[in-house]
């Protein structure tokens, strides 16, 4: 009885699937799927290497500090970094006083309440504060950016596939829309207030090209070409997304070495116990 039911149900499901397949195959054979510009012209992130890559990689502190400077002077005008607190900058090589100075001198202030009147107000940030957002809220952010919302950057390096390389590619990837694209997809012309960037998912990004050669000057005279700055800020955002990366890797090695020894011992134990048993 159970087998008869099973047979009927099996025939039904398999039959419907094969019918779906047949109709799908017929459709695929008779109709061509329209190609899209995104399909044809989207590019994967450029190959770029960082000091923190690989199982032994460590952050390059000087690069992170340069990246912070780029973020502060360029990105922070529109993008928040709301998971990061000023005190965290101690981890990229600043001492307590430097951290306080960075907090105090930050372009945006921390929202607070006027102690006299109770009205919304702001005060200079302290080390324990999270980095203040450039805009009070989403509405303000959209209003200032042509209705596009600049995303928070704290986790950007983990929120995109191959994040650090994606950030680098996006920042250095602005170009004119290729003639071949317009020829093939005349309707896909980059719209008003948008910029063509083949590394962006739908090719047209609302962010204007943010970096120009020499835009930020580094105290130590490090190169400040567009590519160098993009790489620095990509490294910095990798740190903001994964600040515990170095602890993670070193703990990982300790755990792996320990487990290799344990497993070796356990294997010998296992073999010794089974030595007189054929199995």
């Amino acid at each position: 009885m159970i087998r008869i039911f099973a047979l009927l149900i099996g025939l039904f499901f398999s039959g419907m699937l094969l019918l779906s397949f047949a109709i799908g195959a017929y459709t695929a054979a008779t109709e061509t799927v329209a190609e899209t510009a995104e399909h044809k012209f989207h590019k994967h992130a450029k190959a770029v290497s960082f000091a923190h890559d690989g199982p032994f990689g460590k952050f390059d502190r000087a690069q992170l500090q340069r990246g912070l400077k780029v973020y502060k002077e360029v990105c922070a005008a529109c993008h928040s970094l709301n998971q990061v607190a000023f005190r965290n900058f101690a981890e990229i090589g600043y001492n307590e006083d430097e951290v306080k100075a960075i907090a105090k001198g930050w372009p945006a202030e921390t929202p607070s309440v006027d102690p006299e009147t109770g009205e919304a107000s702001s005060r200079p940030a302290i080390a324990a504060d999270k980095i203040p957002s450039p805009f009070l809220n989403e509405v303000a952010a959209r209003a200032a950016n042509n209705n596009a919302l600049p995303p928070d950057l704290s986790l950007m390096a983990k929120a995109r596939h191959n994040g650090p390389a994606y950030i680098y590619s996006l920042l250095t990837g602005y170009q004119n829309q290729p003639a071949a694209l317009l020829k093939k997809f005349p309707d896909s012309k980059t719209g008003e207030g948008l910029y063509y960037n083949p590394y962006f998912a739908n090719l047209n990004i609302a962010m204007a090209p943010p970096l120009n050669d020499g835009q930020v000057t580094f105290d130590d005279g490090s190169p400040n070409s567009k590519a160098a700055m993009a790489k620095d800020v990509a490294a910095f955002l990798t740190w903001t997304a994964e600040p515990k990366m170095e602890q993670r890797k070193s703990a990982g090695w300790a755990a792996l070495i320990f487990l290799l020894i344990f497993t070796g011992l356990a294997f010998m134990s296992y073999k010794a116990i089974w030595a007189d048993k054929k199995h």
Partner: peptide, 19 residues
């Protein structure tokens, strides 16, 4: 030698659990 291996394995497991 066998006993030693068992003792070592169990000790390692204990240290690992503590770690």
């Amino acid at each position: 030698r066998r006993d030693f291996i068992h003792v070592a394995t169990i000790s390692f497991a204990g240290v690992g659990a503590a770690a």
